[in-house]
């Protein structure tokens, strides 16, 4: 590795992170607008034309807000928790291939890397909830820990089918294996359904947003956080959503492939944003699950079905040989 390579990697990293930060700013405007219109409202309208500058106003507000630290909190952990979350979520971007031959690090264990970082991201929620020394935060953290370890199993198992069909865990290879429109969503429809629902649970989104259920736990693990630290949690959540959507697109919807009249990266981002819209759409539609229902669903339905999916995929693969 020479100096040129290192400079190129740095440029790629900074570029992706910068674009990503803009994405986080504007995707929440997208969410507010989409959900508002689904509820026959209009959403932010004041700052700029139809509120397009609202995210900038929000970030300025959050940046200058007072950073409140609860008296009896565990201060070092209280400080570290949001940083763990945002680092874990943003580093997952490194392996996502935006177009042919472009990813910051073309890892051979790409899927495992993303799963590993998403499990590290759970620590942010657990530790943040614990360190706040508040009952709401603590319950949010506990719920999140149990939820994330349960659904990570289902999620990993649902991706095993994809790994079997493509014979690789490298995300670029998985996309190449789906060339000419042979998207894995057709043979792996069961795996896709499980993956998508587990991804909803993994990113703490509605209908599985038990760790931050407003009606019961105020704001869950983030109750005691304010200002920039809260914004970091927020960023981690939206980063997680982007990564999960990108993983779904790469594993089941052919990644950057699409008809030639648009560049591949546009196809990729369009698919990812369709998924993100689906997240918002579901948030506007479904009520929240009860906690025991959530755990029951994860352990009693998704894990057995995911295992059955693996067995079926293996059988079909052998039969077709």
């Amino acid at each position: 590795m020479n100096a040129n390579d290192i400079v190129w990697i740095l440029i790629k990293t900074i570029g992706v992170v910068a674009v990503f930060l803009i994405h986080v700013m504007f995707v929440q405007l997208f969410e507010r607008k989409a959900i508002a219109h689904m509820q026959s409202r209009m959403g932010p309208m004041r700052v700029g034309w139809h509120g397009v500058l609202q995210p900038i106003a929000d970030s300025i507000k959050l940046f200058f807000k007072e950073d409140i630290i609860p008296t009896n909190s565990d201060k070092p952990i209280f400080f570290i928790a949001p940083i763990i979350g945002v680092i874990a979520a943003v580093s997952s971007l490194a392996v996502i291939p935006l177009w042919e031959g472009f990813s910051i690090a073309n890892l051979n264990v790409g899927i495992l890397y993303i799963l590993a970082l998403s499990s590290v991201g759970a620590y942010a929620v657990i530790l943040g909830g614990w360190a706040s020394n508040s009952k709401y935060s603590f319950l949010g953290g506990l719920r999140s820990s149990a939820q994330v370890i349960s659904y990570e199993i289902a999620m990993g198992l649902s991706l095993v089918g994809v790994m079997m069909m493509s014979g690789s865990t490298n995300l670029s290879d998985i996309v190449s294996a789906q060339a000419e429109g042979r998207w894995f969503v057709v043979p792996q429809i069961m795996g896709f359904a499980i993956f998508f629902i587990a991804a909803l649970a993994e990113t703490n989104r509605v209908p599985f947003d038990l760790p931050e259920a407003e009606t019961e736990l105020v704001s869950g693990f983030a109750t005691e956080y304010s200002g920039m630290r809260w914004a970091l949690f927020f960023m981690a959540e939206y980063a997680g959503m982007f990564v999960m959507s990108a993983l779904a697109v790469v594993c089941f919807f052919g990644g950057w492939s699409g008809p030639g009249f648009l560049p591949p990266v546009i196809w990729f981002l369009m698919k990812v944003y369709a998924f993100i819209f689906l997240y918002f759409w579901i948030r506007a539609t479904l009520p929240r699950y009860r906690y025991d229902q959530l755990m029951g669903l994860g352990w009693k339905i998704f894990i057995p079905v995911a295992l059955a999916n693996i067995v079926l995929t293996g059988l079909i693969k052998i039969l077709l040989k």
């Binding site: 989409a34 508002a36 219109h37 689904m38 509820q39 026959s40 409202r41 209009m42 759409w281 539609t285």
Partner: peptide, 10 residues
């Protein structure tokens, strides 16, 4: 919800 999204806001 999709139907509501495409109908005008009140």
């Amino acid at each position: 919800t999709f139907k509501h999204m495409v109908s005008p806001a009140v």
